[in-house]
Every structure is written in structure tokens, then in C-alpha cells.
Design a protein around this nucleic acid. Structure first.
Lengths: 124, 124
DNA sequence: TATTAGCTACTAAAGACGTAATAGTTAATA
DNA sequence: TATTAACTATTACGTCTTTAGTAGCTAATA
């Protein structure tokens, strides 16, 4: 079974992945919604219980570190989207992903290079 | 706010998207887990309450049709994955998506063509 | 030493989710 | 007409998710 994070858990993990680590207050500050300190703490403790984060003392406070990495959570989430919504079609998914106006030509080129590399490997 | 479906709701919508429509029994048959008839019915009614499906009579039974389409649910789900897990990097997401061994060269080529088209549009 | 600031631990609780039993309805059929 | 089969409607309920109040601890400080 692949790792499944609840929406709120994902919010918190995203902060930790971005910052590398965080205290309860640091995480709370970054999260968009105004959550009580104790709420964030509870979430982090829940995540710790599930083995997704760990903590160590940092002065008076605890500093939390991600244990589960984006890839771990990502492949599951992505597979699910791919499967259920795009019916397994990576093309369709990529199409939608790049349909967004905001994608820059540079980004598109870099992605194309990525593909070329991958194709080169396969042909050699 | 973008559309958010729970995992189970997504399972059911996926069936409806695939089949085009379905009765309670048809949906239940396709879903992997063995769910009681009444469970599937409840889910469909919930989805109807949220406006994601509608139904019409089909003989004795009701036939359910998707109202919410894959794109509607997809962009939200994909954006969320992109945002939270891949920190907004489409490259990173595509890399992971194509890292899978199972991706065929044909599929890769088709995706590259897609990119070329897109780039062509931008440059003209 | 008494107080305060800044934390963590504990406890509670509302609401969403998922599952299903059972009651009710309708149309075919024996 | 009485019975049965195939559905839908109603209702319940355990678990998970989220949120947060409050108690307790510790170190600085007035």
C-alpha cells in the first residue's frame, strides 16, 4: 500500500519539505489558514505517530524533520490521479499539465530535453 | 475552491467516467472492494447531493451519470500534487511520471510531439 | 522567591467518511 | 390475490480527521 496523507497532513509535510525542518510555530506561520498552536502540534504528533516525521529538541522547542519524503508520498498520489482521472494515460495528464498558460517556454524546453534524454537511453 | 473528491468518491466517479454511466449494481461490480449494495447507493446519493452526479430512471433502477468531469476534478487534484509535493515544479513532476520503467518509447515520443506542438505555437 | 513567557502533554469534541442493516415500494409471477 | 424479486429510502454507527482548550513544566526575570 502506498503512503496516503490526509489533506491537512499534506499541508504540513509540504512545509517541512520546503523548509527542511520546522518548529511548531514555524510550521504554523507558513500554513495559510490560521490554526491554533495546539492544532499544529497535534497534527505533528499524529504525523510522528504514523512515522512521517521525527523531532529533536531545539532549545526549548521541538524541531520536526520529515521522515517520509516527497517521492514516497508523490508516487502514490500521482499514480492515483493518473489512474482514476486520466485513466492511466500519461499523455493526457501531461497535456493537461502543460495546458496551463502559465507554463514558460523555458520550462517546456527543459521538459523536452528530459524526454530526449530518456528516449536516447532507450534507443541505445 | 477547486473540486475535492474523497478517495472513495473518486473511485466511484472513475467508474462513471469510464463507463459513461452506471446503475448502482454496475458501479458496485466494477469497484475492486466488495461493497454492499447499500454502500454504493449511499455514496452515489452523497455524490448527487454534492452535485457531482445526477440520475434518471432506467427501468426499475436508477442510472447515474457523471456531472463533474475528469478535467474538473483533475486540475484540482493535479495542482495539489504539483504544489504540495513537487513544489510547483512541472519538470520534477514529469520526471517522476516518466521515471516509471513501464512507459513505452511510443508514449514518450507522443508526449514529445505534444511538447513540440506547444512550443511551436509559442514561437510563432 | 514569585511571576511570567514559552513550550509540551493531555483531553475533548464536532464533523466528515465509509459501511451497511433494515424498512419500504413496485412490478412481475405463481 | 399472495408472494417474491429487485430496487430505493431511511437510519445508524464506528472510525478518522481536524481543531482547540487547558493543564503542566521549565527557565528566565522582576
Amino acid at each position: 500500500m502506498s503512503i496516503r496523507l490526509t489533506p491537512r497532513e499534506l499541508d504540513i509535510m509540504a512545509v517541512l519539505w520546503r523548509l527542511g525542518s520546522g518548529t511548531v510555530n514555524e510550521v504554523g506561520d507558513v500554513i495559510e489558514d490560521d490554526l491554533a498552536y495546539s492544532t499544529v502540534l497535534t497534527m505533528l504528533r499524529t504525523l510522528e505517530g504514523k512515522g512521517h516525521v521525527r523531532h529533536e529538541a531545539d532549545g526549548k522547542a521541538f524541531r520536526y524533520y520529515p521522515v517520509t519524503q516527497p517521492e514516497d508520498a508523490g508516487s502514490g498520489a500521482l499514480d492515483r490521479v493518473l489512474d482514476k482521472i486520466y485513466q492511466g494515460s500519461r499523455e493526457l495528464l501531461v497535456t493537461r499539465l502543460l495546458a496551463d498558460e502559465a507554463v514558460s517556454p523555458e520550462e517546456l524546453r527543459r521538459i523536452r530535453e528530459l524526454l530526449d534524454e530518456r528516449l536516447g537511453e532507450l534507443e541505445s
